[in-house]
Every structure is written in C-alpha cells, then in structure tokens.
C-alpha cells in the first residue's frame, strides 16, 4: 500500500511541476531513476520509444508505463491518476475564473495576442514534426543527408488527400500507417 501511495505522490509532483507537455516530464523521470531501484535509465529509453509508438498523449503513456513497471496494472492506474490530479484542480479553477470574466476587457485583450502566439507555437510544433518525418533532422541542425523521398511523396499525397476529402483525421492516419508498412518506410 505504502509503495502505491509513494508512486501516487511522486507522479503528483511531476504533474505539478512539469509545465508544457509530455517531454517536459522526462527530467523528472530521471530524478526518480536516481532515487529508486525499480526504474532504470534503459527503461526510460524504452518508455520514450513505446510512448511515441502507441496512441495516447505521451505524458500519460509514460506514467502508465512507469507505474506498470512498479506494480502492474494497479500501478499504472495510480501513477496516471497522480499525474493528472494537479491538472484537474488547476484547470477547473482557471476555467471557473474564465467563465466569470469572459466578457472583461482585460481577459479579451490578453487573449487577443495570446491566440496568434499559440497558433505560432502550434505551427512550430508542426514544422518540427514535418522536419523529423521527411528530413529526419531538427530545424536547427538542418541537413539534406537523411532526406527521405518516400516520406516527401506521402506528405504531398496526404496534403491533397486531406484537402480534397472530408474524412475524419483517423482515416488519413490509418492510410499513412498502412502505406508505411507496405512500402517499408
């Protein structure tokens, strides 16, 4: 029992301090690794690979994986609940405030510039996903050496496919996965 309680609080801490998405939890997981024997650096490496190659938000996948290594299915539930507890409380408080002050000039002004900024951040995330998928490289260390022509063709095909049809995004994802397997991407 106390092991599960410890697991819950360790992930509660991560949920409280990891700001900005799944990868932000990584440094905290390395802290856990140096504190406890049930988590190793190799496991963290595996975990990143598995989180990236399964559906679901990465941060949640990581918590589930680490919790499972600690104490099976119940461990994954406890770790994930620990991770999301602070989010739920903080977001409900903010949502509550937002609903009350939705019409206030101050809130409107802040969001007026926040929206284009958030769009810029999302565009940047999209750009790095595309760079990694087609050129297998980061934007800041750009190189043509690993350029993947098959991926570029799929990229162009998917742009046309998603613009010309009204299918749910999952259809495009499923087709891309199938093409990846068929043509050994």
């Amino acid at each position: 029992m106390s092991a599960l309680l410890l697991l819950y609080f360790e992930f509660l801490k991560i949920g409280l301090f990891a700001v900005g998405g799944g990868l932000a939890t990584l440094p905290f997981l390395y802290d856990l690794e140096s504190k406890y024997t049930w988590l190793t650096a190799a496991m963290i490496g595996d975990m990143v690979a598995i989180s990236e190659s399964t559906p679901g938000p990465m941060g949640v996948n990581m918590a589930t994986y680490v919790g499972f290594q600690n104490s099976g299915v119940i461990g994954s539930v406890i770790a994930t609940l620990g991770l999301i507890t602070p989010s739920i409380i903080i977001i409900i408080i903010i949502a509550n405030i937002l609903v009350k002050f939705k019409e206030s000039k101050i809130v409107k002004n802040v969001f007026y510039t926040l929206r284009p900024a958030a769009t810029g951040l999302i565009a940047s995330a999209g750009l790095s996903v595309i760079m990694l998928a087609i050129f297998k490289t980061n934007i800041t260390a750009f190189t043509f050496s690993k350029f993947d022509f098959k991926c570029l063709l799929l990229f162009i095909f998917m742009i046309i496919f998603t613009w010309k049809t009204k299918f749910h995004p999952i259809v495009a994802i499923a087709i891309s996965g199938a093409i990846g397997i068929l043509f050994s991407f």
Partner: peptide, 25 residues
Amino acid sequence: SDLAVVQHAFAGIRVCVGVLILNAV
C-alpha cells in the same frame, strides 16, 4: 517498439501527423 512493422507504420503516421497539424494551423 523494435518490431519492424511498428517502425514502418509510425514512419508513415508521423508524416500524416505533420500534415494534420499543418491543416489545424
């Protein structure tokens, strides 16, 4: 995540996710 079929599928899916985010923007 070491399985060849998983790696091929995800190489394709990553391209698609890039396109979908672009459309979202």
